[in-house]
Design a protein around this nucleic acid. Structure first.
Lengths: 255, 255
DNA sequence: TAGTGGTCTAGACCACATC
DNA sequence: ATGTGGTCTAGACCACTAG
């Protein structure tokens, strides 16, 4: 199976090959979860070196179409996405997971009182001398790590709730302890996974991550928590509903 | 400059090298826009083959830290992001660009009446027999392609406004012609750039793209347009403001 | 033990940019 | 003409998975 006549195509071989494999995957010739032929075999099938095949498979990896496992092979990936509402931010991750048929749990990577980073101090409206509680945790759905959550709590919230916050989902813990959130500012962006993040979330380096930045308030606009959730883009999306659009209003909210 | 003592590190060479280069970039040793040493020189500096250096630079590419130009070199990238409000969706892209100091323009890739795709027909609440107008265009900021917008208009909107829609920004054109949007459903996700998208937006294959899915209404909840905006994650982010959070409400909006 | 993907080498040729 | 990144080869060794 030689790619095509050499005269007409201007595409690199690894692109031609990865696009052909992509078509086969999308056509169902290689079905979901199925193992692709080995790199050696693919090299023979296309009549190219293993290096070129590896580059082609790397293209599919970057596009999230396959995953690779050392010693086993390359497998067609594909899964449905878990959707979270932007209207209830960090909020109810556990409920959203449960409603959509997943078992959620968290693994804490650390909970400590630290001097506040400048950015967090500003969002929580506290001075640089006061303490701040920083929590970092991985969120799992069916034992797959799907997100890294980083929270900053002001001392008034973090100190009395240190223990429950350390162990449970943020929103549920807050509401269970009488802190009812009533507003916030959020922003969404996307970044490629750094090496460190790729290790934490078991994804290839560079895979898109959704970054949900938030600061939420309770009572009389007291900041309750701020931070960010970095979630695997192959597992998550965010939804929102709008009403009464007014072009001049609510634009360029600074977070 | 040999990486480190061989006994202790378990990281591949290309990771060690790309992480070292990353540190230098973030420390400012290589400043913004500066050219890195050539692959050949880097190979000599680290005492490894060019293949390994290319893999290391590929890691930086995937993380959006550098860009490469054939015949010229590799350059440190880095730019601020343009923020769009989720409260006014497709909406005022041109104004948002202008307010943030960019010159915006569009290039149409096509505008045609077609039989409606099933998904679009459902969102626009029309039957499969009626016609639909599909528009595809690239959005530029300062002559850099930052987004691909795909719109579907029902015949009642698309037919009379074919000409102006073809040439201008969507929201501005609609409001200028008496169609005032007053609500909508949106969702945000992120996907890696496919080969085709990477060509259209001049980004490396696999770079994260933000996908803004929308359907917006006017008058008495008549769908005016639906579609999606795929924007370069290194140039764009979305912001939103919330009030009166109610945990049970507005969750899992289906788009 | 055999097969797989992960790493790395040394070298070749090409297309493009610059002088 | 020279230097750059982009493509591709042929081959080696390693780490891991499996029967």
């Amino acid at each position: 199976m030689v790619p095509s006549e050499p005269g007409s195509d201007r595409q690199p071989l690894h692109i031609v090959i990865s696009e052909q494999l992509k078509q086969k995957i999308e056509a169902g010739d290689y079905s979901l979860g199925e193992r692709l032929p080995s790199e050696f075999d693919l090299g023979e099938m296309f009549g190219v070196s293993r290096t070129t095949i590896r580059k082609a498979i790397s293209n599919l990896l970057q596009q999230g179409l396959v995953t690779t496992q050392r010693g086993k092979g390359s497998f067609v990936s594909g899964r449905r996405k878990i959707s979270f509402s932007m209207a209830s931010p960090l909020t109810h991750f556990d409920m959203a997971l449960q409603e959509q048929g997943y078992v959620g749990h968290i693994r804490s990577l650390g909970f400590a009182a630290i001097p506040p980073p400048a950015e967090a101090a500003q969002m929580l409206q506290i001075s640089q001398d006061s303490k701040i509680y920083r929590q970092e945790k991985i969120i799992y759905a069916d034992n797959v790590p799907i997100a890294l959550e980083i929270d900053y709590f002001p001392e008034t919230v973090g100190a009395p709730l240190a223990e429950p916050l350390h162990q449970g989902f943020t929103y549920s813990t807050l509401t269970a302890n009488g802190i009812h959130l009533n507003g916030g500012n959020v922003s969404l962006e996307s970044i490629p996974a750094t090496y460190e993040l790729s290790e934490l979330l078991s994804v290839p380096l560079g895979l898109p991550l959704l970054v949900f930045n938030f600061v939420v308030y309770w009572g009389d606009r007291q900041p309750a928590v701020c931070g960010k959730v970095l979630s695997r883009s192959d597992w998550t999306c965010y939804t929102s509903e709008m009403a009464d659009l007014d072009p001049g209003e609510a634009r360029h909210t600074k977070l």
